[in-house]
Amino acid sequence: MLFRQLFDAETSTYTYLIADPATKEAALVDPVVEQVDRDLKLIGELGLTLRYCLETHIHADHVTGTGRLRQLTGCEGIVPQNANAACADRYIGDGETIKIGEISILAIATPGHTDSHAAYLINGDRVLTGDSLLIRGCGRTDFQSGDAGILYDVIVGQLFSLPDETLVYPGHDYRGHTVSTIGEEKQHNPRFAGQDRDSFIELMDNLNLPNPKKIMEAVPANERCGKIPAFL
């Protein structure tokens, strides 16, 4: 498997390139519009064909590159089930699998940060967690119909049930971390280690974080697969 972790410094967003080296089929997860040229250059250099762009959720901190990539490559845009994105080619539900050559991409429904969110388990050994589980943290739950109790349930009940050695690749990191494991996060993530559901909800309800700088632009644009509405 070909696997690349790509970074957008302005929004601290990770984009992931996954490809089968035999068939040259590829997928991008959570592309960023400002990085489309970078991503296409890499795909071309590696001789790949982009089949899919997958979103973990409707982002509030960056505008997706899916719409532009779809125009330029003919790839399919895929969003989690129930996401407010009528422009998507396909919605993916919990337990559904996409194949990239011999590579399996399994969707795991992980709502809570937003009301529609998916993590993607790649070949059973690494999970792209989007904004649900972060390295030593988790996504906020105070907008876009977030729910702290639901987020606790899906992380503890779904993601923490994966084998401890499963690699964790988040959608963002603000402190220079690139990868963790499920075992590490169970033991060392302060949002979960030593917390129960009630204390987690109380913690999340009192974070008092500022809104993402791009939220007014990003959410309506991402509901249109990256097309910024004319009124913004």
Rank of each mutant, 00 (worst) to 15 (best):
G171R: 03
T141K: 06
P212Q: 00
L133R: 00
I201K: 01
L133C: 06
D205L: 13
S180E: 07
V179T: 13
D147W: 07
S132L: 06
R175H: 13
H177M: 13
G176K: 06
L162Y: 05
E202V: 09
L167G: 12
L203D: 14
G146K: 04
Q144C: 11
L162M: 03
D125L: 00
T166C: 10
H177L: 12
S180Y: 08
D142M: 10
A218K: 07
D196G: 09
D173T: 07
N189F: 10
H172Q: 15
D198A: 15
R136Q: 14
T181Y: 01
V127G: 00
V154I: 14
G149H: 07
Q187D: 11
K213V: 15
T178V: 14
R126G: 03
T129N: 04
D147K: 10
E184A: 15
M204R: 01
D153W: 01
P220V: 11
R136G: 11
P220R: 13
C138Q: 08
V168F: 03
R140K: 11
D147F: 09
Q187L: 15
Q195C: 11
T181D: 05
D125F: 12
D131Y: 05
P190G: 08
I182M: 08
G124M: 10
Y169H: 13
E185H: 09
G137V: 06
D205W: 02
D196Y: 04
S145P: 03
F192T: 02
L128A: 03
F192V: 08
I150V: 15
H177T: 09
T166E: 04
G124R: 00
S132Y: 01
D196E: 08
D198T: 10
D153I: 02
N208K: 13
L159D: 07
P212A: 01
C225N: 09
L134Q: 10
P212I: 03
L167R: 14
L203T: 13
P170G: 09
M216L: 15
N211G: 11
G130H: 04
Y169D: 02
L128Y: 05
T166G: 02
D147N: 15
L209D: 07
Q158C: 08
K186I: 12
I215M: 15
S145V: 08
P220T: 13
N189A: 06
H172V: 11
C138P: 06
I135W: 00
E217G: 01
T181R: 12
P163A: 12
V219W: 05
D198Y: 02
E165F: 12
I201Y: 02
P190K: 04
I155R: 02
G139L: 00
E184P: 02
N123G: 14
M204F: 04
P170V: 12
N123R: 03
G183T: 13
I201E: 06
G146Y: 07
C138S: 15
L162T: 00
P212S: 03
C138E: 08
A148K: 01
V179W: 02
D196K: 04
D125S: 11
G130Y: 01
G139H: 06
D173A: 10
